[in-house]
Design a protein around this nucleic acid. Structure first.
Lengths: 145, 145
DNA sequence: TATTGTTATACTCTATAACTATA
DNA sequence: TATAGTTATAGAGTATAACAATA
């Protein structure tokens, strides 16, 4: 099912990816905390700032149970960062969308996410292109469509 | 403090890194769940399987409060995967170390972590070397020593 | 009947503060 | 007095199951 014994080079890369994941989270949580948001709240807000969507779809996108989203959006709504709008096409649906302040916060969050920006500044344009293409091919594996 | 307007190429890479982080977590949590462990429990167990250490050091390494580690190790100990040993040199210290079964579980966890192994199989050895070096340079930024 | 969002429940993770036993 | 680990507490995230409104 899986390759049982990766070579040392692959193990190195796996370890480096683990380090990237750890760094990414540190930076993301710090940026969220600067706005008194939890990581989960920041993730939902950022998602909605790209594209408002029904609660159900938020859960699907974040791969968690719909009941969780209720609470997270509750807290964002209490902070005035998100609002629930009716869906004219289906009265069961509630569309979660950032308020104007929510959009501002999401933008600041994105700008504050220094990760991969400062480190990437170390790389030349050509190197960043190579990195982009390698990551794309890695992620392209096991993808549908 | 930070570069305000990354170029499109950099934005692409940042987005890809976000996708890598998401995929990494999916796989990690799934592998942990297969052993009825939470992500946090699996992380602590994996850390200890590399190197048993005082509770305090676990917290420092995972960048969380020491009081959290008490509960996580409690649950791992209840499952028979980890044990607390006295430190002969300092009677305040408790060394957390995997049991034999804990080591087995940690090994299975590592083997089950398909991420970056299957995707990396798509890349040639030369490409993996390039990827490793680029990631190293990215992470090398902002590192002490 | 099926689906959307919610509520209720239980467990885990998390930080903070206070405690204990050592040093 | 300082440090290691723990406890107590409160808030947040998570999954499960049951529910009301709507389709």
């Amino acid at each position: 099912m899986t390759t049982p014994h990766p070579d040392p080079l692959t193990l190195d890369v796996i370890e480096l990816i683990g380090a990237v994941v750890a760094r990414y989270h540190e930076e993301y949580d710090r940026a969220a905390a600067d706005h008194a948001l939890t990581g989960a709240q920041a993730r939902v807000l950022s998602l909605l700032s790209v594209d408002p969507m029904p609660m159900r779809k938020v859960a699907r996108t974040l791969k968690c149970e719909p009941s969780n989203i209720t609470g997270i959006v509750d807290r964002l709504e209490l902070r005035g960062l998100v609002e629930r709008r009716p869906d004219p096409a289906d009265r069961r649906v509630k569309l979660a969308a950032p308020t104007e302040e929510g959009h501002r916060t999401a933008r600041q969050l994105r700008d504050a996410l220094g990760f991969a920006r400062e480190p990437l500044a170390e790389l030349s344009e050509e190197e960043r292109t190579v990195l982009r293409d390698l990551l794309r091919r890695m992620l392209g594996t096991q993808r549908e469509a």
